[in-house]
């Protein structure tokens, strides 16, 4: 932990640098999404753009967490709490994704749209 005045002065420079880096990455995100020659993958938005966008966002998020939130030098307990949050967060995401494998099927469940188990009024059994 930066506690002495000299260390804090040094840290301030780092904070400024990280801030500028974040600005830069923000511009990169927008450029990748809007400028045509930087459009990777197929034309327009597709999974490649989604992955690139999320990678840049993750880099930015890591910088904020490591530098601004001091996660580069923290006590063990903070990491434990943080990892618990991430693990449970991922668990919640999986819980939502679980709905994709809902065993309840409407209709015959043969078409692509129907495999998900979502209600399709046109394919619902008539009673």
């Amino acid at each position: 932990m930066a506690d002495s005045v000299a260390e804090i002065q040094k840290a301030k420079k780092l904070y400024l640098f990280i801030g500028l880096t974040l600005f830069f990455f923000t511009v990169v995100t927008v450029a990748v999404a809007t400028v045509e020659i930087l459009d990777f993958g197929g034309r327009g938005f597709d999974h490649v753009d989604a992955v690139i966008g999320l990678i840049i966002a993750s880099i930015k998020a890591s910088l904020v967490m490591l530098i601004f939130m001091h996660l580069n030098h923290e006590k063990k307990l903070v990491y434990q709490l943080f990892i618990m949050g991430i693990v449970l967060g991922v668990f919640l995401m999986v819980l939502t994704a679980w709905a994709f494998s809902d065993p309840i099927r409407y209709g015959k469940g043969t078409t692509e749209a129907n495999k998900s188990g979502f209600y399709d009024p046109e394919k619902a059994p008539q009673d």
Partner: peptide, 11 residues
Amino acid sequence: WIFLFPILYLM
């Protein structure tokens, strides 16, 4: 917000 911005505005 760092995640919200690309997801809601750019994707």
